[in-house]
Design a protein around this nucleic acid. Structure first.
Lengths: 214, 214
DNA sequence: CCTACCGATCGGTAGG
DNA sequence: CCTACCGATCGGTAGG
């Protein structure tokens, strides 16, 4: 009796592994070469298969891009949850701040992930259900924090969706401005964190009206 | 004596006209085919010249992209100024709202212009001086409105740059979420305008603390 | 999952 | 500003 040991060549994939390998390859291409470096053929090469192999798992390039965007969404969600779990306070605003820090941290580390997500894959009713679900999950994390904060009277603004959308817009815009070079990026992670906190606290206090005189 | 009439072939350019024609062609390509459709060769074809001609005006593709981004910045600035001039109120917050409406209106009409601008051309010290200037001009419109509002006690938040950055982030993020399809876009221009106003008014009032009880 | 092939496009240069 | 050319890459398909 012989013991069969799984002996894969390091750069070859069988069964369902290739689909996952192609997604990972795509994420790597995005991180290292940006949007322009993301191609079916390059992903296939990174995964160690011929350039025709991906078509066994994705009908065309757009579907691979969608799968990569979905993965990006999930990683973004994880980054928010991570920061949220490290947040000791139960206060709604404090938890919102943590979410924002997690969002911007991920976005500035992986700017091209977000460029894929918000670059057009979501447009049209043709969005894949899995991609839609990944987006809903990310939004759900934010909306739950906001809804709870509203319930507890720690946040205000009426409509839970409007408040969530406003928060999302703020952190997403800030992410873009920082990662694009439009705004000189802070010199350290701590400084970036402080900037995110400052902007979100401003949203907390409001900017209309005269400064309160002490 | 004969009168010389300028007789250009409709698709040919001489002198300095080609540079401008290539920029216009690039903007058209962006609007009609998106980022992927923007190439030196396609721009040359649209301008009616050979694909080698652009190199007389731009040393490489990146410089054409930078010139197109610069033009995009200027159009964005014009859209903000237009809305600002249509604003009757002198109140700082009202003027800020007008700015935001102009920003989002332009961004959702020309999402690919913004994608070029914030896609990486600004990164590194290698940004062209003209591009930098166009960006500074756009930011200046916002910062001036904010600074005046702070001076007059109609806005608060202390640092003029922090308040400006927060507003910019909010409207830019909202633009991205709408134009990417992440958030279902309002059914009409009027509805979109109301959404922008709602989000910015929320930034005005603030979202922290309990709702004031009447 | 592979080899071999298709047509198309790209950025860029030589040389005039 | 043009023609002609370079090497490279791309998405996708045929056929096995």
């Amino acid at each position: 009796m012989t013991i069969r040991v799984a002996r894969k060549k390091p750069d070859s994939y069988q069964h369902g592994d290739l689909r996952e390998a192609l997604i990972q390859a795509g994420l790597k291409l995005l991180s290292e070469q940006g949007l322009a470096g993301l191609s079916l053929r390059a992903a296939a090469q990174l995964a160690g298969v011929s350039h025709a192999a991906p078509y066994r798992h994705f009908p065309d390039k757009q579907r691979l891009v969608a799968a990569i965007a979905e993965r990006g969404f999930r990683l973004l969600t994880a980054s928010m949850r991570e920061e949220l779990e490290g947040c000791r306070s139960e206060d709604g605003l404090e938890r919102l701040l943590a979410l924002g820090v997690g969002y911007v941290r991920f976005a500035t580390r992986h700017p091209d992930y977000l460029r894929v997500i918000f670059g057009g894959v979501l447009r049209g009713g043709s969005a894949l259900p899995e991609l839609q679900a990944a987006g809903d999950e990310a939004y759900g994390v934010l909306r739950d924090v906001v809804a709870l904060g509203l319930d507890r009277g720690e946040l205000r603004g009426g409509d839970s969706d409007l408040v969530s959308l406003t928060c999302w817009s703020l952190v997403h815009g800030l992410s873009t401005l920082l990662s694009s070079g439009a705004v000189p990026p802070p010199t350290s992670a701590a400084a970036q964190r402080e900037l995110v906190l400052s902007a979100l606290r401003l949203l907390g206090r409001g900017i209309a009206g005269a400064a309160p005189t002490p």
